[in-house]
């Protein structure tokens, strides 16, 4: 059992509270996602600008186990990091990690901290493999994910379409627990 809330002290001294998201976090999470550049929202599977979608996203879903941590600065959500895996079937030992940090808190060490926390959850969830996907030409995200120990599994050509409609390669990385 990992105890929350925790406080992460960023490199610049700002104190960020980290804890699991709850159903009461719908509004601050909506505000967080709406504050992000549209490109950042693209890597989420659902339209997080819709309140009802966000509400359902924070509820338990059949056949899925999800741990979702949020970073809070003042009254604002400024980061979300999650791990999700199916509880049934041939891929149930594989967790998918997602990480989004507000632009103002990037390069603060927060992403690495959240990634390590989520990886600890992955171990406790008995997962054997954690996967992550980033745009291959997004150097900052690639560097961040490799710092966590993830290794490249391969590239899916043209799998990502950006807001301008241009295709990019999707880099798939994985880490064994």
């Amino acid at each position: 059992m990992i105890r929350y809330p925790k406080v992460y002290r960023a490199k610049d001294g700002r104190a960020i509270v980290v804890r699991p998201a709850t159903a009461d976090d719908v509004t601050p999470l909506l505000e967080f996602f709406l504050s992000l550049p549209e490109e950042d929202r693209l890597h989420l599977r659902v339209d997080v600008t819709q309140r009802d979608v966000m509400h359902r996203r924070l509820k338990d879903q059949p056949h899925w186990e999800v741990v979702r941590l949020i970073g809070i600065f003042g009254n604002d959500v400024i980061a979300e990091c999650s791990i999700a895996h199916r509880t049934y079937g041939f891929e149930s030992h594989v967790g998918e990690m997602r990480l989004l940090v507000a632009p103002d808190f990037r390069r603060s060490g927060l992403a690495t901290y959240l990634g390590r926390q989520i990886f600890a959850h992955a171990i406790m969830m008995d997962l054997e493999k954690v996967e992550a996907a980033v745009m291959a030409d997004d150097a900052q995200s690639v560097r961040c994910i490799k710092q966590l120990g993830f290794e490249r599994e391969g590239v899916l050509k043209g799998f990502v379409k950006d807001v301008q409609g241009n295709n990019h390669d999707l880099l798939i990385l994985a880490l064994s627990t």
Partner: peptide, 23 residues
């Protein structure tokens, strides 16, 4: 063949096998 996903599939008998993604 685009990617080989290492140990990505657990069989009914508990073994881990690779999965190939074809695009």
């Amino acid at each position: 063949k685009a990617i080989v996903r290492r140990d990505h599939q657990r069989t009914l008998h508990g073994d881990l096998h690779d999965v190939v993604v074809l695009t």
